[in-house]
Simulated scan of single mutants.
Amino acid sequence: MGRSSRLFEIIQILRRATSPVPARSIAVALEVSQRTVYRDILTLQAMSIPIEGEAGVGYVLEAGFDLPPLTFTAEEVEAIVVGLSLIGRTGDAGLLEAAARVSRKLSAVLPPTTENSLEASPLHVSRWNAIPPARIAYRMLRQAIREERKLRLSYENEAAQRSERTVWPIALVYYVDTIILAGWCELRQDFRHFRVDRITSCELAEGSFKGSRDRLRAEWLARQNLFTAF
C-alpha cells in the first residue's frame, strides 16, 4: 500500500471509530509498524487534519471533519459496483481485499443519495467461475510486474511435462476459464503465456528488468496473435 493510500486509510479508520484508536490497532489493520503510524499521524496533523491524541493513548478524529464528496453519475456508480463484484471471480485474495477497501472508501466519500449507494445497488454478479484454483499467490505475480522483478517458475504444461523457467512478467490476462501470466521467457528467448493454475511453485528471482517492461508490453500487445501459448 502506497503512503497516500495509507494516509487515506488512517482517516477512514478514525472516522469509523467510536473511541480513541491505539496506534497498535492501526498498525495491525494496515500491516505496518507502529513507528510508521506515528509518522503518518504527524504528517496528517501537519496537513491540518484535526486528529487529536498521542502515542500510548490513542487517536481520535475531530467530529464533523469530512473529505470533499466525489460526484458520480448513476451509471458510473453501477459500473463501479459491477467491476468490483467481478473481481470475486478471479480467486485473487489480494484483489478481493483491495476491492473491499475501495468500496469502503467510496461509500465514505460519496454523497448519501440512493443513486450513489453501493450497498443498495440492484446490480449483482454471480461468483461462479470456471477458473481453476492457483497453487501460488497472485500477489507475488502482481508485485513482480509492478516492480519489474524476474520470477523463477516451476511449470507443468498440458501434457504434464515439467520445466523450470526464468520469466520477465509483464501482464496478467483474466479469461472466463483461466488466468494467464504473460512474460518474456529466458529459456525460449521469446514471449510465452503460462496458465497460473499450472505454475506449481514461484519465487522472486535475482535480477530485474527495470526500464524494459513498457517496451516489452508494447511489443507483446503488437504480437498478441502470434504467441506460442502454454
Rank of each mutant, 00 (worst) to 15 (best):
G2V: 09
R3S: 02
R3N: 02
S4A: 15
S5L: 14
L7S: 05
L7W: 10
I10L: 01
Q12S: 06
L14Q: 01
A17I: 00
S19C: 05
P22G: 05
P22H: 00
I26Q: 01
I26F: 03
V28T: 12
A29G: 01
E31M: 11
D40S: 05
I41D: 03
L42T: 11
L44P: 01
A46E: 15
P50L: 15
I51T: 01
E54A: 08
V60D: 12
E62V: 12
E62P: 10
E62S: 14
A63L: 01
D66A: 15
L67P: 01
P68T: 01
A74I: 07
E76F: 01
E78I: 04
E78V: 08
I80E: 03
L84N: 03
S85G: 11
S85D: 12
I87T: 07
I87C: 10
G91N: 04
L96G: 12
A98H: 10
A98G: 10
R104Y: 13
L106W: 00
S107K: 13
S107C: 13
A108Y: 07
P111S: 08
T113S: 06
S117G: 05
S121V: 12
S121L: 15
H124P: 02
H124W: 09
V125Y: 11
S126G: 08
N129D: 15
P133N: 14
A134V: 06
I136M: 10
R139N: 07
L141M: 09
A144Q: 03
A144D: 03
R146Q: 11
E147F: 05
R149L: 12
K150H: 11
K150E: 13
L151P: 04
R152P: 08
L153V: 05
N157K: 00
R162C: 03
S163D: 01
S163R: 06
E164D: 08
T166S: 09
V167C: 03
W168H: 15
V173Y: 14
C185I: 03
C185H: 08
E186T: 09
L187E: 06
R192I: 02
R192E: 05
H193N: 12
F194H: 06
F194L: 06
R195W: 13
D197W: 05
R198S: 03
S201Q: 01
C202F: 01
E206G: 14
E206L: 11
G207I: 04
R213E: 09
L216M: 15
L226S: 15
F230Q: 07
